[in-house]
Amino acid sequence: MKKGILLIGLMIAAVSSLFIGVHSIPITDLFHLNVQQEFILWQTRIPRTVSLMIAGATASVSGLIMQHLTQNKFVSPTTVGTMDSARLGILVTMLYFPTASILTRSVVAFIFALTGTLLFMWLLQKMSLKNPIMVPLLGIMFGNVIGSFVTFIAYKKQLIQNISTWLEGNFATVTKGDYELIYLSVPLLIVAYLYAYPLTVSGLGEDLAINLGLNYRLVQLIGMTIVALASSVTLVTVGTLPFLGIIIPNIISVYYGDQMKETLAITAVAGSLFLILCDIIARVVIFPYEVSVSLIVSILGSLIFIYLLWKGVNK
């Protein structure tokens, strides 16, 4: 029923996304495209739409996993320093291996992302915060510390321009040949789905999870590895997408609950749909120019985020 509507919505949005852009490709011409139209479709439109779908799904599912791992609804890779740590990794590759391939960059970014996330989890455990609002705050502070370190180094080494490309998610530059790494997220999402039940059990908290015989530390590590890998891949190919990882899982949770086995797929679909819609807005709002999709995601996302916080506080 409702799940079906989301899926149909995603399909419609994805198809519309293919036919919106500076160069007009009317959908009616689909079966008799000229050479140039065909080139644009395959070279930029399809890569863009596909990467939007994957990035949206990945960001929201990563958020969903992080929320279960920390038992906190306001946590996502962008609020616990995962993304900032990955960016530090990219800076390191730019400084020391300037000719590194996109794959090497992702691997280094992944190592930094995982280390950063583990460090945050360790801090969280040491501090045992009573107030759930404090957890994302600690995460944002932690992320900002790493972020300002990145900015400082980048400034010193005159890499600010380069590094800021990774600050904002941007799909305008996605073209055939340099975005394919994002496909790596698909098997990661499948692994997450296979692991959904243990991840939900770990969301019950350490004591209950151990009582149920779950290897809590191992599941935490697997969950964080999935998130760090997926985040690094997304960061390297399209950039950071703020808020997506928080708002989508929270909205889905209101309607479908928190049994991840039931909600993971729908969270992924909703994330893709939301991101494609934001991207369409970003492309038409000052047509024929476009704004960064991050901007649209931030505006809509921050409003929804404040609303969710408000509702959470008044519960």
């Binding site: 039940y197 969301g203 019950l204 004591d207 609950g257 928190d258």
Partner: peptide, 18 residues
């Protein structure tokens, strides 16, 4: 046990079978 998850009673009891 502060579970901040939206679960039904049956879902929570089902975890006992994990």
């Amino acid at each position: 046990n502060q579970i901040d998850l939206v679960l039904t009673v049956r879902e929570l009891v089902s975890f006992g079978r994990f």
